[in-house]
């Protein structure tokens, strides 16, 4: 059996890759991909810990809800990014800066 720590290492690595993508990418879609990686890191954690839970359910149920909500959030974000492309002809967040102090 794979020890618990290995799962946690994988999920921590996924989370860090996701954060790196969010902070460094110059493309809104790639940022969304990074967010998705972070979410999946958390979901992996939840399922792993669920194995050691006293009821063996709450973590897995949580993971299911998280997957559904992530899908909903991504659907909304993609529609919004499409809209941004219509007006700006680019989806580079650093070039979209009409609003600022």
């Amino acid at each position: 059996m794979i020890p618990l720590a290995h799962f946690m290492f994988v999920s921590a690595a996924l989370f860090c890759i996701g954060i790196y993508a969010v902070l460094s990418k110059r493309n809104a879609i790639m940022i969304l991909v990074g967010i998705e990686l972070m979410l999946n890191a958390a979901i992996l954690n939840l399922v792993t810990f669920s194995k050691h839970d006293k009821f063996e359910a709450s973590g897995q149920v949580f993971a299911l809800f998280a997957i559904i909500l992530a899908a909903a959030a991504v659907a909304v974000s993609l529609a919004i990014i499409l809209n941004v492309y219509k007006y700006y002809r680019t989806i580079d967040p650093t070039k979209i800066d009409n609003l600022r102090n």
């Binding site: 959030a73 007006y87 967040p93 979209i96």
Partner: peptide, 22 residues
Amino acid sequence: RQTEASMKYALFGSACSAIMLY
């Protein structure tokens, strides 16, 4: 401006909620 606001909001919000879920 409105599309820009919505994109900033959605991306920042999703990133924050992903961090919270972790």
